[in-house]
Each structure stands twice: as C-alpha cells, then as structure tokens.
Design a protein around this nucleic acid. Structure first.
Lengths: 209, 209
DNA sequence: ACTTGTGAAGCATTTCACAGCC
DNA sequence: GGCTGTGAAATGCTTCACAAGT
C-alpha cells in the first residue's frame, strides 16, 4: 500500500495541507517561509513540519527557512501533482455530476477525462463538456485516455462491479464514494470518502442529550 | 475535542465501520457474531475489534461472541445515532444539492431539516422537499429546528462566515466541505471533507511516470 | 540570532498472548 | 473447543532539544 514504508499515511495527508498553505502564500510571493509559519497555517507543530520534510531529504536552509517556490515544487513532485493526473468519474447521479462540475480539481492538477454511467437515459448526455459514455466501454478506454485515477460515485450495490472494470482497465488508484469496502488487486490503491461515516464520527463528539 | 480522552479518533472511525458491517449482518439476523467475523467484514484485526469494544465496557460473551442486535444498539448509542440527529446544509450548489438529495443520511439516523444559501436566485426554490432559506436566518433557526450538525458546502472564501453563523446559532458540530481551515470556538467539533486532498493523497501512491 | 535537520525521548496505538468463561 | 477481555510487548508516531548551518 505505501510507496515508501517509512512515510506514514498521516504524513502524506499533512504534505497535502502544507502544499495548500504554501499555494496560498505563493500569491504573495514572500520569497521564504519558516517551518513554524507553515505549521501555523496548516494547524501542525513546527517540529512535525520539519520532520515530515526530512523524510524526503529536507529542502530548507538553516537560519533562513524554505524558498516558497522551491517548496511548492518539492511538495507537488512528492504528491505527484507536478504532472497532470487524469481521472474518470463513474456514476453520473447527483454526486458524480457535482464532481464533474467542480472547478477545484482542474485548479490543482487533476483533469477529468471521462464520465461513465450504465443508465441508458444518461449515456449520451453532455456534462461539463464531456459526453457520458457507457460504463461497459470503460476497461478499453483507461489506457487510451491515460487515466490514473477512477472515481466511483455509484450506489453501494454496483460499486464492486465498477471497481472490477477499473482494475481490468488498469487504473492505478480508486477514489470510492460508495459506502462499501472494495476488493481489488493489492497493487491498486483505494481511498474511501464516506460522508455518512464522517457524520457518525462527528455525532460521537456531540454532547449527551 | 475528545469526549473520552482514552478513545482515539481512529477508534471512533472504526466503530462506525463496525456499525456498518453489523447492519449488513442484521438483515440476515444470524443471532451472534465473533470479533474475527466483524474484523473480516470491516478490514480490521480481531484483536483490534475486541480492544475497541473494551473501551466501552465490552459487550460480548466469551465462547459465544456478540449478539448482533445488542451490538448494533451499543454501537448506535456510542455513536449517538440511536436518536435522530438533525442537520442543515448551507450552500445549495452542485454539492449541497447532491447532499440534500442523498438518501443515505435518512437511512442512518440523520435528518436534513433545513437548506440555506445566500444567492437570491436560490432562496425560495424547493429541493428534496425543503424550501431554501436565506443564510441570514440561520443563526435564529438552529435552536427552533433542533439542529446539532451543520454542513458547509459553499466556496472556500465564504466558508468562515458561514461557520461563524453556525457557531452563533449554537450548532454542536460542523462538517466542512470547503478547502479551508475553519476557526471556531473550541467546544464546536469540526470535521473536514476535502475531495481534492484525498486525490492528492492517492496520487502520492501512484507509480512513478 | 535565527532556523533547519535529526537522534533520542516520550507518548499513543496496535498486536500478542493468555486467563477466564461459555 | 472456541471466544472474549485485557495486561504486557511491540510497533509507530510526535515532540523535544540541540548540533550545525547561515
């Protein structure tokens, strides 16, 4: 699962926050930034920031800090968003349509290159500049479209079948919005986003009635 | 932040997975289930399952396992989903509309009781059985509507202002879909869902080009 | 004087392994 | 025989604190 066994998933997650913070900074082009400033912007301790960077060799100058533009490049390369990552969305319901229309992906290096559904009333319609294709065509299109990540936005009962088609087409990673555990070849990385789960976890912290 | 300092956030997250697994089981009404079976269904070790349960006193019988219906009740009570939790959604764009239409919330104890937006062209329209209200009315409506959780589905630039209104109205928790760190009174629990961040974390595990 | 990078210490979480119960 | 509940060991993660660089 992990590309580099000494780097924890929590570290990767924070790297993404650092990148977000640094990108906000970059507009102002201040030139240099310290680990404590990055920590403040990201809600993390300065020591944690430096430790996280150190797993990748460290890219600051003692007494000075980190060059904002270099830091942004380093983080983008580590997170593989220094190149375009191409994604397909399967399941053009409310959620799939919302994802297709979301401008935030393009802004951060992700490009939607295909929409798929199995519903004949949806196949053929155009959304956010893409014609919705039959999901049966998906396996054959992953490679020509150079897809690296597939997003699953179908109901729980069809999610595994969609995942199988993605794996058959050789996507490298899957972002799964359906509330089920997918079974995939172990070299395929899966991440789940389950809004109901997040609500349940929030509810735990609610005061007693 | 934590209700019970000896229970980690990761444990709460797993409890929600256990509940999901047990609910799938409950349909079949097998009567009893073992920690290893729950673990298999949830992708967790059997020892971890038992340890997690033990934080709440343990509710199994040695040699037998866990009564499925009792387990479901225990988990639901711990996660506070044994009672209805009432939520409002602010921001009726693509995402907010998708959330409002999602049937999975109601099925698992969450009830949407209000939709809000600041856009005059949206205020007044009806969606999933709810009339969209002006977000300015939100603070005054949290208590009468008995809202415990507020969901923020507005653009990043307006998310903090919405959070402030929620806090003013005294919601207990916020689910934030905007890619910004919210500043709130520290007794308000915030969880962030950032799809772009999930994509970035996935991209990290992608094979080199 | 200020900041990075990093071993070492401190803390948290997970796994182990087994006593006790059905 | 099989399963739970739980201290103890093992592992993993974060914070500390300081040498070294600017």
């Amino acid at each position: 699962m992990r590309r580099n066994p000494q780097v924890a998933e929590a570290t990767v997650y924070r790297l993404s926050r650092y990148l977000q913070s640094v990108q906000r900074l970059d507009a102002d082009a201040v030139g240099t930034v310290s680990s404590s400033e990055i920590g403040r912007l990201s809600g993390v301790s300065a020591a944690q920031v430096r430790k996280d960077f150190s797993y990748f060799g460290g890219f600051g100058r003692p007494g000075v800090g980190y060059s904002i533009s270099e830091l942004r490049q380093h983080l983008a390369r580590i997170l593989r968003v220094d190149r375009e990552q191409r994604i397909v969305i399967v399941g053009i319901g409310h959620l799939g349509a919302a994802l297709a229309a979301y401008p935030g992906f393009q802004q951060r290096g992700f490009r939607i290159v295909g929409l798929f559904d199995s519903d004949p009333t949806k196949i053929g319609i155009t959304l956010a500049g893409h014609r919705v294709r039959d999901v049966e065509e998906l396996p054959a299109l992953v490679e020509p479209l150079k897809v690296s990540i597939g997003a699953i936005a179908v109901p729980a009962r069809s999610a595994q079948a969609v995942a199988d088609k993605m794996v058959a087409g050789k996507v490298a990673a899957i972002l799964n919005f359906a509330p089920v555990m997918l079974e995939v070849r172990e070299d395929v990385v899966v991440k789940n986003v389950d809004v109901t789960r997040e609500l349940e976890c929030l509810a735990y912290y609610l005061p007693a009635p």
